[in-house]
Simulated assay, not measured.
Amino acid sequence: MQSKDHAVWGRSFPVKYLLVREDEEDEEGGDQLWARCAAVEGLFVDPVPPPREVLTLRGCAPAGWLRDAVNRPETAAGLLGDMLVEVSDDTQPVGWWELVDAVVLAQRPCRTDPSLVDVVMGAGVKNLAGGIRTPPPSPRFELFTRTNATAGHCRAVDGLFAARQEPPTIPMELIGCEPTEPLLSVLRRPRRWERAGAQLWTLDRTGRRMACHDVGLGIDGARPSVLGGALIDITLTDGGDNRPSSATRTVWEVWYQGAPTSPNQWAPYTSQGRAEWLTLTRQATRARRPDRTGGVHHLDGRYVTDVPGLHCALGEALAGPGGYFGWGWDAFRDCLCGGFGVAPPFTLIWHDAGIARQALADVVYDPGERLSYFEEVVRALERSGVTVVLA
């Protein structure tokens, strides 16, 4: 389904959103329009952080940032930010947790192995996947930073498997909706669809699909729209858990005007805003494209002061303003394998490379390599056949 085919409806205000669901009668899994909408309240939300808890990493061999925090607890290194805990059995990972805004509170030698430490941490805890309530018989606990850099491993994590309440769902209001027959059928029998899901497509001013979010189809109410006419307003009980933060609204306002046409529009934003910029570039590049090789590409390094900025600048160097070439380490490595419009071999001239080298000197993806994130990216490019010129 092409978004532009449904972006016009003959009213004085534009269609900004489409409610879309997979067509169950289409053998090829096509999309089916359920509603055009003029506005959405509750698209941008700041989720309530999880309650703070105290955890103990037993028999821990810390690495990277965690090692620094353990060795220097009296400094700001004790502030770790978000971390991931991966729990594995004898064969594979079985569960993942996020430790939100983790802080090292104390550390002491492990009683059973003096070469290891017990680390006491404060953090909010989110169960990301797996749903396991007890550890497997022979568990392994691997620790990672939010950028997937290893932070070590431990034998156990006291408090990790505690029972926790699921966070409450946050509703969403669809304003000024023109429903199609499938949605009208749901509105006649809303309970039937309490567990079903759909997608909310956000359109830019040209009608191009700009972003896509999963939403629930549990409907808490439908009523004549505040915009009048035959339109209706609908309350969804669950607007989804991957909505952008309210702090990134200005980034969306830029993209609503259309795909970026000039470079460095991402540069004025904070790391959070730049990360959201990358999210929109990724969604704008939904399908893999034929690759071109060769040629010389210029990377403007003047504003590469963080990891999101590096990937914004790299995407623009290789694919033009608003271009995508990965949003983080793993995605960047995937792009080097081809399918995103450009593939090695080619030449990349990185102007003002010293800014990124200095800004990312303490950002480490793999502590075992003892390279900064900047150095890791350069090495990955070169190993893939890219000639990198640091200017």
Rank of each mutant, 00 (worst) to 15 (best):
residue 244 P to D: 03
residue 220 D to M: 15
residue 201 W to E: 10
residue 235 T to G: 15
residue 203 L to E: 06
residue 225 S to K: 00
residue 223 R to P: 06
residue 177 C to E: 00
residue 190 P to R: 09
residue 227 L to D: 11
residue 189 R to S: 11
residue 175 I to A: 10
residue 254 V to F: 01
residue 226 V to M: 09
residue 225 S to N: 01
residue 192 R to P: 13
residue 230 A to Q: 06
residue 244 P to S: 07
residue 201 W to G: 06
residue 240 G to S: 03
residue 211 A to G: 10
residue 250 T to F: 01
residue 197 G to M: 15
residue 186 V to L: 14
residue 208 R to I: 02
residue 178 E to H: 01
residue 249 R to L: 03
residue 260 P to E: 04
residue 200 L to G: 08
residue 193 W to P: 05
residue 217 L to F: 15
residue 258 G to S: 06
residue 232 I to H: 03
residue 205 R to E: 08
residue 210 M to E: 10
residue 205 R to V: 10
residue 211 A to H: 08
residue 208 R to E: 00
residue 202 T to E: 02
residue 200 L to F: 11
residue 226 V to R: 11
residue 176 G to W: 10
residue 228 G to V: 04
residue 184 L to P: 05
residue 202 T to Y: 03
residue 218 G to Y: 10
residue 242 N to F: 06
residue 231 L to A: 07
residue 248 T to E: 02
residue 256 Y to P: 00
residue 191 R to I: 13
residue 236 L to A: 09
residue 228 G to L: 07
residue 217 L to Q: 13
residue 180 T to M: 06
residue 180 T to S: 04
residue 209 R to P: 12
residue 236 L to C: 08
residue 197 G to E: 14
residue 247 A to W: 14
residue 222 A to Y: 07
residue 231 L to S: 01
residue 188 R to C: 10
residue 218 G to N: 10
residue 207 G to K: 13
residue 178 E to V: 00
residue 194 E to K: 13
residue 239 G to I: 06
residue 240 G to F: 02
residue 212 C to T: 12
residue 194 E to N: 12
residue 232 I to L: 05
residue 234 I to L: 08
residue 236 L to D: 11
residue 185 S to R: 09
residue 185 S to C: 03
residue 232 I to S: 06
residue 197 G to Q: 15
residue 178 E to R: 01
residue 203 L to Y: 07
residue 208 R to M: 00
residue 250 T to S: 04
residue 245 S to F: 08
residue 194 E to P: 09
residue 214 D to Y: 10
residue 255 W to L: 04
residue 237 T to M: 12
residue 217 L to V: 14
residue 210 M to C: 15
residue 226 V to L: 07
residue 187 L to G: 08
residue 200 L to Y: 12
residue 258 G to A: 08
residue 214 D to I: 04
residue 229 G to D: 06
residue 216 G to Y: 13
residue 258 G to R: 04
residue 239 G to P: 06
residue 240 G to T: 02
residue 255 W to Y: 08
residue 233 D to A: 12
residue 226 V to S: 09
residue 203 L to N: 05
residue 221 G to W: 12
residue 251 V to A: 00
residue 244 P to C: 05
residue 245 S to G: 03
residue 228 G to E: 04
residue 219 I to N: 13
residue 235 T to Y: 15
residue 187 L to D: 13
residue 248 T to W: 00
residue 211 A to N: 08
residue 251 V to Y: 01
residue 216 G to W: 15
residue 209 R to D: 07
residue 177 C to W: 00
residue 254 V to G: 02
residue 239 G to T: 09
residue 234 I to G: 03
residue 237 T to E: 09
residue 200 L to T: 12
residue 184 L to F: 05
residue 207 G to F: 14
residue 235 T to V: 14
residue 241 D to E: 14
residue 180 T to Q: 03
residue 260 P to G: 01
residue 190 P to D: 09
residue 243 R to E: 05
residue 202 T to D: 01
residue 245 S to M: 07
residue 200 L to M: 12
residue 231 L to K: 01
residue 216 G to V: 14
residue 249 R to H: 04
residue 259 A to Y: 02
residue 182 P to D: 03
residue 179 P to Q: 00
residue 187 L to I: 09
residue 204 D to Y: 08
residue 244 P to T: 05
residue 242 N to Q: 03
residue 175 I to H: 05
residue 201 W to D: 09
residue 199 Q to L: 09
residue 232 I to N: 04
residue 184 L to W: 06
residue 212 C to M: 14
residue 226 V to G: 07
residue 186 V to F: 13
residue 178 E to K: 01
residue 220 D to L: 13
residue 221 G to M: 15
residue 198 A to V: 12
residue 198 A to E: 12
